[in-house]
Amino acid sequence: MAIREAIRDGADKTAQASSFPLIHCRGLVKVYPLSGVEVHALRGVDLEIKQREMVAIMGPSGSGKSTLMNIIGCMDKQTSGDYYLNGVDVSKLDENGLAATRNANLGFVFQRYNLLARATALYNVELPLFYAGMAGAEAEAKAMAALDQVGLHDFSQHWPNQMSGGQQQRVAIARAIVKRPLVILADEPTGALDTVSSKDIMEIFQKMHREHGATVVVITHEPFVADFCQRKVVIRDGQIISDDQVPNWHDV
């Protein structure tokens, strides 16, 4: 609770000053010991993402972008270097602190939706609230509001297998935003979708960003998806090779 409040407080203080780096990585190195050989997934990454930014992290497979996403998402720890989420040194958090941070401050969207198959859309969106100790009507109301935001109000009682891929991914987005996290982290959110659905999903992210001031980080290898973002960071062999603003990104 304390960690969550600390991070939240920071966010409130900096809501006006959007130059404050929400995500601040300095010299991030990640080494995996893989059957005796050390694999250097990240070789010193410096990255700052400010509040209300919408950033695409691009790179071919094996470039280290998923590793970066895991570290930013507090699901893995760096070998060396620093990572501050809203000013908090994540490496100093224990397991429970990391879980609480993921629950309160991060919203994940995955390539394969990763919804619970035997639960309604509503129940899936309620899950993060359950892990925050909420239940009942309060959780249901919040989850319905999130489903509204992704345009799935009428699908709350549908099961994942009764929905299209695009709809399932929208449920996953509703699940990610239901706790109004500091950062929405999307790992290849369009990887399993056709072009129309992909565009749909990216427009929802843009809407979240535009209307609710969400900070969105999208990991992708498709340039078409990256064009929906304000800023494009390219990683190759564990290092950032380019970091550019995207002109006319709203008009895709």
Partner: peptide
């Protein structure tokens, strides 16, 4: 395993 991963990603602690 994947479900457990998702639950952890959205905030389940090891205790949960």
């Amino acid at each position: 395993t994947r479900e457990i991963g998702v639950r952890m990603a959205i905030g389940a602690s090891r205790q949960d």
